[in-house]
Design a protein around this nucleic acid. Structure first.
Length: 573
RNA sequence: CGGGGCGUGGCGCAGCCUGGUAGCGCACUUGCUUUGGGAGCAAGGAGUCGGAGGUUCAAAUCCUCUCGCCCCGACCA
């Protein structure tokens, strides 16, 4: 390929719209352009990268026995209503009406569609297991699209769906996908981390996310892992072993009201009462759909709202606003407590359930209670884990290691869905015993466009992107320092031809630009290998090869140059 | 949705406060020179100043409304 024959609009300056290094680089290096918030044009170089990531994904899915199909982007509202997700997914979904005012959905995931398909096709356990996947554009009406392809409203995703006759089969199918994911992401150059995750709106019995660990702003998720065992989880899911002693047998002291003028925050109250924060219990009021729930958690802990949301079973969970808190507690914000709180369901963190004689707000402005005890002083509705993991805590798995944290980009996820969708959509097969049973399903996603940007976020330096060979838009760039020079042109053309003949993806920078411009563009775009054809080398009958990642330069004689270049290319990652 | 910021040739920005000829750098076109890390000189083209309304003799500039974009938060298949 000749540079002047494709379109690579590099920019000298950072575009104002970009914040992340990867976003800036992809725009500057001419890989993409924004159309509107969260929606992008993928230019020729990006198209090549996306093709490669898709192909790697396709190869590994095929190898795992999954079958490629294409499902529609446009979905009728009915399937979403039937599964019950029309209301759950709600505003996240791109919706439209056709000319007959019928509701339609631009698909963000395809559980409903594929389950409906399979329901009409498969009758017998003999046709199982089955796994179908597609690579396709997806839509999601993000509240705030940002970071380029990291959080777009339109993006490309590989989604796969497995169907099995029982949980045993699902486990096997799931493990196949997990293995395939490790291969996919390793081929993309990542040291990928698999972590336990919350199942969220997908529902089901278990889930994992595949994370690329980065040390930049691009790492949107905090992941927790044990320094002694294999345990790893994202922040939504992570738990830890509590240091809370069991005080339930302790003598319960009489409830005592204390005057705490203007002391609202945990810090103010602990300072004032000369008590450590872990002797306090926070009462956090939430609006869970149409109900008010109170979450009780130790003063030194942060709440994990995902855990609360799951436990309360609501669709929407948000902190109650000040007027609501005032009307519920009858006091200013900052003095809420569980005692005498009416019309509210209590969710106790398990640590709180073990505590005795703790401090809470008194539901009276400027007052707190001391020696509060669950059960005696207020009703307990649910006991559960509500704590947000913070790192440094004890591992819940091996109980010996300590939890460490990293920041990661989620590039893939896997869900054990169980029978949630098959039952909702009445998708049954006849098992060996002659009885109707719902398919046991799994669903598995890979963010193709997000993976591309994750690579740029993970592999770059001050000069630009550093693509791994496996997904680089071109493997080799040939840079004649002056293409107007007949001699240089001839040699560059010749090497270009020979390398192409070897089946290598090579681009010849035949632009009438100065050497500096070409070098800078080559580095910015991030071709793994650069061949410099210049007078300096030619005087010695040589050309130079530079490895983008390492900066390593090799000079070689002209004659077998193409062979030697191919050899070096073969050696690098 | 709450908070903050920004909309001026293709891109990055200045000008706005204090109203009066729309400017700079890059990019682009032509010519000459130059040619191993973002060349120089010369000439040239390109802008409804996001949109609508208002104030004024006069609006990029002041006022009102509106649309879009970016950042923080909530959200996240």
């Amino acid at each position: 390929m000749r540079w002047t024959q494709i379109y690579i609009p590099t920019l000298r300056e950072d575009p104002a719209e970009a914040e992340l290094i990867s976003h800036k680089l992809l725009l500057r290096a001419g890989f993409m352009r924004k159309v509107t918030a969260g929606v992008y044009n993928y230019l020729p170089l990006m198209q090549r990268v996306l093709h490669k990531i898709s192909n790697i994904t396709r190869e590994e899915m095929n190898r795992a026995g999954a079958l490629e199909v294409t499902m529609p982007v446009l979905h009728p509202a009915e399937v979403w209503q039937a599964s019950g997700r029309w209301d759950v997914v709600g505003k996240e979904q791109m919706r439209l009406k056709d000319r007959h005012q019928r509701d339609l959905v631009l698909g963000g995931t395809h559980e409903e569609i594929i389950t409906t398909l399979i329901k009409g096709e498969l009758r017998s356990y003999r046709q199982l297991p089955l796994n179908m996947y597609q690579i396709q554009v997806k839509f999601r009406d993000e509240i705030r699209p940002r970071f380029g392809l990291m959080r777009g409203r339109e993006f490309i995703m590989k989604d796969a769906y497995s169907f099995d006759r029982d949980e045993e089969g699902l486990k096997i199918a799931y493990q196949k996908m997990v293995d395939a994911y490790f291969r996919i992401f390793r081929r993309c150059g990542f040291d990928i981390r698999k972590v336990e995750s919350d199942t969220g709106q997908m529902g089901g019995t278990g889930a994992h996310e595949f994370m690329v660990v980065v040390d930049t702003e691009g790492g949107e998720n905090t992941i927790f892992y044990c320094d002694k065992c294999e345990y790893a989880a994202n922040q939504d899911k992570a738990t830890f072993i509590s240091d809370q002693p069991d005080e339930r047998e302790n003598e319960k002291l009489p409830l005592e009201e204390v005057h705490t003028p203007d002391r609202k925050t945990i810090e103010e109250v602990t300072d004032f009462l000369k008590l450590p924060a872990e002797r306090l219990v926070k009462t956090l009021l939430y609006r869970a759909d149409d109900q008010i729930v109170a979450a009780l958690i130790r003063g030194d802990r942060q709440i994990n709202e995902i855990k609360l949301k799951n436990e309360s079973g609501c669709l929407e969970l948000e902190m109650a606003d000040a007027p609501t808190v005032q009307s519920i507690t009858g006091s200013e914000v900052g003095f809420a407590g569980p005692c005498d709180l009416k019309r509210v369901k209590f969710f106790l963190d398990e640590e709180v359930s073990k505590m005795a004689n703790f401090v809470t707000g008194a539901n009276k402005t400027d007052y707190h209670y001391k020696n509060v005890n669950a059960g005696r002083d207020f009703r307990v509705d649910h006991i559960t884990d509500l704590k947000l993991a913070e790192g440094g805590e004890r591992c819940p798995h091996c109980e010996k290691g300590s939890l460490k944290t990293d920041r990661g980009i989620e590039v893939g996820n896997t869900f054990m869905l169980g029978t949630k969708y098959s039952e909702a959509l009445k998708a049954y097969f006849v098992d060996a015993d002659g009885k109707d049973k719902p398919f046991v399903m799994g669903s598995y996603g890979v963010g193709i466009t997000r993976t591309a940007q994750a690579v740029a976020e993970r592999f770059n330096d001050k000069y630009g992107i550093i693509w791994p060979k496996s997904i680089a838009p071109f493997g080799i760039v040939i840079t004649p320092t002056n293409y107007q020079d007949e001699k240089l042109k001839e040699i560059a053309d010749q090497i270009h031809g020979e390398l192409e003949k070897k089946g290598l993806e090579v681009i010849l920078d035949d632009r009438d630009e100065r050497a500096g411009v070409k070098f800078n563009d080559a580095d910015l775009i991030g071709f793994p290998l650069r061949v410099t054809v210049g007078e300096r080398g030619l005087a010695k009958g040589q050309v130079e090869v530079k490895v983008r990642r390492t900066g390593e330069v090799t000079s070689m004689d002209l004659d077998p140059a193409a062979d030697k270049i191919a050899e070096i290319y073969d050696r690098i990652d």
